[in-house]
Structure formats: C-alpha cells, structure tokens
Design a protein around this nucleic acid. Structure first.
Lengths: 136, 136
DNA sequence: TATTGTTATACTCTATAACTATA
DNA sequence: TATAGTTATAGAGTATAACAATA
C-alpha cells in the first residue's frame, strides 16, 4: 500500500475536517468572520439571552476561551450583553449582528451544499448520521 | 430548533474530528506520542528513506513545521537521518523507532475499530469513502 | 458550595517569509 | 531556477489554574 494512513477512518476524518474547515474559513474571511464566530452568532440567533457559560457548553469551548471570542464580537458591534443578575449576563445579537448572522448563514449553507456535492450520492445520506454518532 | 448547527455536516465533521483526535491523543500520550508523531512513524515504516519534504507533502504539513516534529522524534531515538546528497537527507526508523511504531500501530488500530463501533452498522461502510471524497 | 465571568499562561498546530546551500 | 532544510515569527485553538463576586 502506498499510503498506510488511507485505511484509517480517524485519519480521513482529520484530513477531511481540516480541509473543510480551511475552505469555510476562507469564505468567511471576506466578512471578517471565522467558524467559531459564526457558530456563536447562529446559536445566539436561536437562543437569545443565553449566557456565555451556557454557550461554551453547547459549543464545547471552555468558559475562559469564550472571553476573547465574545470580546471581538462585541467590539465589532455584533453582540451585546445585558445583566441577568449580579453574576450572569445574557447575550444577544445586535441589529447589525442579526444582519451579519444572516449573511453568514447564507455562506455556510452554500458551503455545506458544496461540501455534500463532493460526496458520491450513494454515501451522501449516511455522512451526517455517521458523524453525529461519533460525538453526540 | 434547539441546535441550529446539528443540521450541518461541516459542523458535525469538526466536532467528530476533534472528539476523535482528543481521544486518540489521550491513548497515545501513554507512550509519549501524538497523532502527528504516529503519522510520521507509520509513513516512515512504509517508505524508508523518504525525505522530510516529501513526508510533509504526503501529510500536508509545511516543510517548516516538520522541523520541530522530526527533531523531537530524532531526540527520542525513534528516527535517524542519513545524507542522500549534499541537499537532501533520507529518514528512517531506528530499531527502537520500529518497535515503538508497532506499538503505536496497535493502539491506532484498536482506536479505529472502537471508533467504527460507535457508528450504526448501516452507515459504517459509507463513512470512509465519504470522508475520502472530501479531501482526496 | 457551585457557578459566572475573568485574567494569566502555556502548549499545539498552522502559516508565512526569508535565508543558505545544493540540484 | 527550483528544491531541501532551516530559522524566526505570528496567529489560531485549546487546556489549566486561580481569583472575586454572586447564586
């Protein structure tokens, strides 16, 4: 065998994920966004008022690592914080953030359909359920 | 929808890859190895005498980033270099490196079969070809 | 006591530019 | 001219520990 790694689904998973991630980041860069930013915006659109900690748990990003991520989004006027109580703050999209989120959603959905188009039709319906089984 | 990201294969790909990667790295850490080290060892076992540049091209790792990776493997007495000409050097496993490579292969193959076991049987045969289509 | 938000820090992986020497 | 190996550097992502304030 020329490439002993080609037999390993775990290796293919890593290569496919980095290739796809790089391609998506390239498309998002035009709007000054990255995958992580967009995942926050999309989740915020679905769950307005969610806290930073809860957001981190959903995205599997440590609380401490949410801080600079949210700071950038706030400084770009994409999200805002309002106090829930003395300890927690609810996050929400600004008006501008909602508009950018919609642009991002369009980019992501185009990307996703381009991605699936690369998969041979007979394998296509199996990809998402197989991947979800690996981390759900 | 509770999680707007769950519909996206690209997102599932990212989460599955990082989850699988972390799990594999945890198993490899016992032998002082990581994914990247093992991919080098396995490829070196299949292609003794390959150069660092060629290795990097196969693994999609920049030449410059191969340097510290190979240096660690050399310092651990897993690989050795011998000059091909005044410009290139061939890489090969040392005796110790070959033994560690075999241990690593066992760990990886156990990991891969555990990974596939998580995928429902009807989706299982489709995963590798679908992933390969995304980066080949 | 547990949780929230935060700071600081370190490590890995990755990307780019530049340099020397050799093919 | 193109390639091999290298250095230096910067940007991401991620992990851990610790702290003050609050639930």
């Amino acid at each position: 065998m020329d490439d002993p790694l080609a037999r390993y689904p775990g290796y293919a998973l890593r290569r496919a994920a980095t290739a796809a991630g790089n391609a998506l980041n390239k498309r998002l860069a035009a709007q000054g966004l990255r995958q992580s930013s967009v995942s926050v915006l999309l989740l915020l659109a679905a769950h307005p008022g969610i806290t930073a900690s809860a957001l981190g748990r959903k995205l599997d990003i440590q609380r401490a690592n949410m801080v600079p991520l949210l700071k950038r989004l706030e400084q770009a006027d994409l999200i805002e914080r309002r106090a829930i109580d003395g300890k927690s703050q609810g996050l929400a999209l600004t008006q501008h953030g909602a508009a950018v989120c919609n642009e991002a959603r369009t980019i992501v959905e185009t990307f996703e359909s381009d991605l699936m188009a690369r998969v041979p039709p007979e394998h296509r319906p199996h990809l998402l359920p197989a991947l979800n089984a690996l981390w759900h």
